[in-house]
Computed example of a mutant assay.
Amino acid sequence: MIELDPPFRLARESDAPQLADLVNFAGEGLPLHIWTGLAGAGEDPWEIGRARQAAKAGEGQIVVADFGQGAVAGLTGYRIGPEPESIGADFPPLFRPLQELEKEALDSWYVNVLACYPEHRGKGLGSQLLDIAEEIGRAEGVPRMSVIVASDNTGARRLYERHGYRQTAERPCEKGSWDTETERWVLLMKSL
């Protein structure tokens, strides 16, 4: 991991409540939909999301912005290797277009989650986190960056395009029972 300067730091397991919120913001409600499907009788879907985020934080996979009151923005990402992962016939239809787009982003550092609480937007945190993502990508030796956004998320798309990301592919959104306005997923990439 690269060295981080305040207000940025690696997430801690105690950040899990904020991380679950941020992941759900970035995923436009898809994470909560998934957590709801994973919840058993009497289980709180948010608790499932918090537990998943605590595990990722414990593995050092998330960078957050914290001005002393806890995480207000976050970045999660990972390296996509040079070999495609197979998509089996039993792969959930909701995730198939996302996985197909990831297969087009081989050998890149993938920005999986980039989100900020609404009251902290417009302060440059998204841009700073993208700079950190690119620094991580360079440190890991990948030649490019990648991200998938919902076609109707114009704010996120503008942010990425300001940073040099360009559309390379898209797929239709397979909504299933997920209540969303999203029609298409868009893959954006940038050379490092």
Rank of each mutant, 00 (worst) to 15 (best):
E181N: 07
D107W: 12
C173R: 04
V111Y: 08
P97K: 12
F67A: 04
S127I: 07
R50A: 07
A57G: 05
A41H: 14
E181K: 07
A150N: 06
N24G: 03
W109T: 04
G77N: 10
E119G: 04
Q99T: 15
G74S: 08
P82L: 03
C173I: 00
M189N: 09
E104Y: 06
R79H: 05
T76K: 03
N24E: 13
Q99Y: 14
L75Y: 02
E100D: 07
I48G: 10
A105E: 07
R138Y: 12
C173N: 03
L98Y: 15
R138S: 14
G29T: 03
T180K: 10
R157K: 04
S127R: 14
A51L: 08
A150R: 06
Q69F: 08
V23W: 04
G42H: 12
E140M: 15
R79V: 14
G29F: 02
Y160A: 01
L98H: 10
W35I: 05
L38V: 10
I87M: 07
D107Y: 13
E43N: 13
G141T: 11
T76V: 01
L129H: 05
C173P: 00
V186S: 09
P82T: 06
W178K: 06
N153G: 05
W185C: 04
S177E: 15
V149K: 04
Y165M: 00
L10G: 08
G49E: 11
Q99E: 10
L114C: 08
C116G: 09
E83W: 14
K123M: 06
L106W: 05
P7R: 11
G58A: 01
T168E: 13
L192F: 10
V186P: 11
T168V: 15
V111W: 06
L19H: 02
L129S: 02
A65H: 09
P45A: 00
R166L: 15
L159Q: 09
T154S: 06
A57T: 12
A133G: 04
T168Q: 15
T76S: 06
Y165P: 00
Y78M: 02
G137K: 09
K103A: 12
L159M: 08
R162M: 13
K103M: 11
L188P: 04
S151L: 03
L130I: 07
V23G: 00
A51G: 15
N153W: 02
R162D: 14
R79W: 07
G27H: 03
Y110Q: 05
P97H: 14
A169D: 13
E59R: 15
I148P: 00
A54D: 07
G126H: 05
P7M: 14
P7N: 10
I87V: 13
Q69G: 11
A139F: 10
P143Y: 13
A39D: 02
G49F: 11
I62W: 01
L125G: 02
D21R: 02
G122N: 05
A73Q: 00
A139P: 05
R166V: 08
P45L: 03
H120D: 01
A73S: 01
C116Q: 11
W46L: 10
Q99N: 08
P84Q: 05
G122M: 09
L192R: 14
A57I: 06
V63H: 00
A89I: 15
L32H: 00
V63Y: 00
L101P: 12
E161V: 09
V149L: 05
C173W: 06
